[in-house]
């Protein structure tokens, strides 16, 4: 059965139309969850609003459980899904630079697009910044190339890296997330409220 387009069940010509529809729902959910507000997003780093943490980990867990369940029931083949490749140092250093950019700018690319859609001027400036960042990377590609292409470990999953059972991992990850959600509510009740 699934995935439908790689298996030829839906013709590839529909790809772009499906992309717009998926994006539409993505944008609606992000905006309705408050992700068009940089002050709400930044709250996760200061403990006054944990919406980012809750939405992000709930989404990852629902997707993880759902995809593995569909694979288990035979509705979709998880081995045909695209696994984001692992370039160890690229992921660590790139992620660290993004972390600083997140706290400084208050958005990540997806949320900044939502904020642009409702007219936030700071988000428009942020998107221009991202494009400048991409330009700097591309123009200085010879400098970044060893980092970008180095320490390639393949399109590996946690099962390949640590030999763990995915079902047990998902179960423990879920329990851990529920604990973190409870902890975040405790922290929030102790932190000074910020109104925005």
């Amino acid at each position: 059965m699934g995935p439908l387009i790689p298996n030829g069940i839906i013709p590839a010509d529909w790809d772009s139309i499906i992309a717009i529809l998926i994006g539409l729902v993505f944008g609606f959910v992000l905006e309705a969850s408050g992700f068009s507000s940089s002050r709400k997003l930044a709250g996760v780093f200061y403990g006054y609003d944990f919406a980012v943490l809750k939405v992000f980990f709930t989404a990852a867990l629902v997707a993880l459980i759902g995809l593995y369940y569909m694979d288990y029931l035979g509705y979709a083949d998880i081995n045909l899904m695209y696994v984001h490749p692992t370039y160890l140092w690229g992921a660590i250093i790139g992620g660290a630079i993004m972390g600083v950019g997140f706290v400084a700018g208050g958005f990540c690319p997806g949320t900044s697009i939502c904020a642009v859609a409702i007219g936030k001027v700071d988000a428009i400036v942020y998107v221009i910044g991202i494009m400048i960042g991409v330009l700097i990377f591309s123009e200085l590609f010879f400098l970044f190339q060893p980092l970008y292409e180095g320490s390639f470990m393949g399109n590996i999953t946690l099962m390949d890296s640590f030999g763990i059972n995915p079902y047990w991992f998902i179960f423990i990850f879920t329990i851990l997330a529920i604990g973190i959600f409870a902890l975040s509510d405790k922290i929030r009740s102790k932190v000074k409220k910020v109104f925005y």
Partner: peptide
């Protein structure tokens, strides 16, 4: 922040 995020991404 945008420049950094663009570069990191």
């Amino acid at each position: 922040g945008g420049v950094l995020f663009g570069l990191g991404a």
